[in-house]
Amino acid sequence: MKKQRPVNLQLNTISFPPSAISSILHRVTGVAMFFALLFVICAWAMSLTSAEGFATVQELMNGFIGKVIAIGTVSALTYHLLAGLRHVVMDFGHWEEIESGNNSAKVTIVLWVIITIVIGVVLW
């Protein structure tokens, strides 16, 4: 049995195709939305406790941290929806070839960046 096998331990030399990056981002944004949901539920519960709780949440959401969390949450939701639609189209048998899959992944990422910038400008 040969013991020589390729080993690539330098992670910075690995290059992923756009479709792999898109798939990884889809999973990462799903996890990010889970943790963002925890914040949203806590803020919602705190705002319903009293008028002071509502004022505290309102002040937090109007501050720098609140805006960053809001933009991040909406950004994660946007990418997850775009990539989910891409996966649905792929489930119907389109964009399954390497070239079209990579192109659809690039379009998804570019749309996500554009929408995130627009949302960031609107929310800021």
Results as ranks from 00 to 15, higher is better:
58 Q>L: 09
78 T>E: 12
44 W>H: 09
119 I>A: 14
29 T>I: 01
57 V>C: 05
98 I>P: 04
16 F>V: 14
11 L>V: 05
71 I>F: 04
6 P>S: 11
40 V>W: 06
63 G>K: 11
14 I>P: 05
68 V>R: 14
9 L>S: 12
30 G>A: 00
29 T>E: 14
7 V>C: 02
78 T>P: 09
16 F>K: 13
9 L>T: 12
123 L>W: 15
105 A>S: 01
93 G>Q: 07
66 G>F: 05
69 I>H: 10
20 A>H: 08
13 T>W: 02
98 I>C: 02
81 L>E: 06
81 L>W: 06
56 T>R: 13
55 A>G: 02
37 L>V: 03
60 L>Y: 13
73 T>L: 09
113 V>C: 12
103 N>M: 01
112 W>M: 07
27 R>L: 10
15 S>D: 08
61 M>S: 15
116 T>A: 12
12 N>E: 14
74 V>C: 12
24 I>Q: 11
24 I>T: 15
29 T>R: 05
117 I>P: 02
26 H>G: 11
108 T>L: 05
17 P>D: 01
27 R>D: 06
10 Q>G: 02
13 T>M: 05
50 S>Y: 03
58 Q>I: 07
76 A>N: 10
100 S>M: 08
121 V>G: 02
41 I>R: 08
61 M>E: 02
118 V>H: 08
75 S>T: 11
